[in-house]
Simulated assay, not measured.
Amino acid sequence: MSQQMQFPPGPPAPMGAPAPQTARNGLGVAALVLGVIGVLSGLIPLLFWLAGTLGLLALIFGLVGRSRVKRGQATNKGVALAGLLLGIAAMVAAVIGAVITFTAVKGAVDEINKSLETSTAQPKTGTKGEDAAATEGGASGSEGEALHAGDTAEYDSGLSVTVSKATSYSPDDFAVGHKGSNKAYKITVQLENKGKEKFDSTLTLVEARAGEDGKNAEQIFDGSVGKGFTGKILPGKSASVEFAFDAPASAKNLDVEVAPGLELDAAQWELKL
């Protein structure tokens, strides 16, 4: 009877051998990508905020990536270093872009404010007209002081506004805005463009108040008056329009206010009836 042969087991595998590690190069690559995008964003001043954010992230990722290389956990030392340097460059570009952007915005705001201060200023010294010689002080056009019949209010833009004296007016049978117990008065408003640019007269607003109580005098519309200003006035040209207002029979004065558009302050005339 045959016997089965038995062999001793082989020696065990050696213990303590280090397991292979995978290089952790992700942060270095991320630093490079973010740095490139950050620098490109920094070339556009308005994107300074994006360049700064990406540059900061690239700087952080690049530093961490280099630390991993030093510990033997990563192998892309050059990539991490390039990402770090690009991050710094992106942050510098962000600072420059911010300075350029804020300077440009400040300059634009200053120009707008300067333009508004010029266009909305009160009329300059007015020109004495028909009733100025009989009125103490004449016409000045200064803030808080009314002009008189025939006086001219002048603006820095080169526009001048003149209002004639008020004369009695007889509305036609189809007039709107006139009460039979009241009196109607007509005035002529002239706009003269002494500036260098066209003036749009379409938005010129003319209003009036009558009597000591200062109640609004309703504007009269008929076939002859009430059409208002239309179109643009060329430099060196003028335009005149007649307006009529309804006033109580006892009214002794008609206060007229002319606002030549939205950008210029209104001027006031005190007309005797």
Rank of each mutant, 00 (worst) to 15 (best):
86 L>A: 00
171 P>E: 05
45 P>R: 06
58 A>L: 07
45 P>E: 03
73 Q>S: 08
220 I>M: 00
245 F>K: 00
170 S>D: 13
206 V>G: 01
1 M>T: 13
71 R>D: 14
233 I>M: 00
36 V>L: 12
133 A>M: 12
78 G>D: 08
226 G>K: 03
63 L>T: 04
47 L>A: 09
2 S>E: 15
154 E>F: 06
65 G>V: 06
71 R>K: 15
163 V>I: 05
121 A>H: 07
241 V>W: 03
20 P>I: 13
219 Q>K: 11
177 G>K: 02
254 L>W: 01
239 A>K: 05
144 G>K: 08
59 L>W: 05
138 G>H: 04
93 A>Y: 01
61 F>K: 02
194 K>D: 15
113 N>E: 15
222 D>Q: 09
160 S>W: 00
3 Q>S: 14
105 V>N: 09
144 G>I: 10
214 G>Q: 10
22 T>W: 12
222 D>E: 09
244 A>E: 02
261 G>C: 03
37 I>V: 15
150 G>V: 07
208 A>Y: 03
181 S>I: 14
264 L>R: 09
87 G>C: 07
218 E>C: 05
3 Q>D: 14
142 S>G: 09
53 T>V: 14
194 K>H: 15
13 A>Y: 12
119 S>G: 02
85 L>F: 11
87 G>K: 00
43 L>Q: 09
229 F>W: 05
48 F>I: 04
73 Q>R: 10
2 S>R: 14
242 E>S: 03
17 A>V: 15
173 D>R: 11
174 F>R: 13
34 L>D: 01
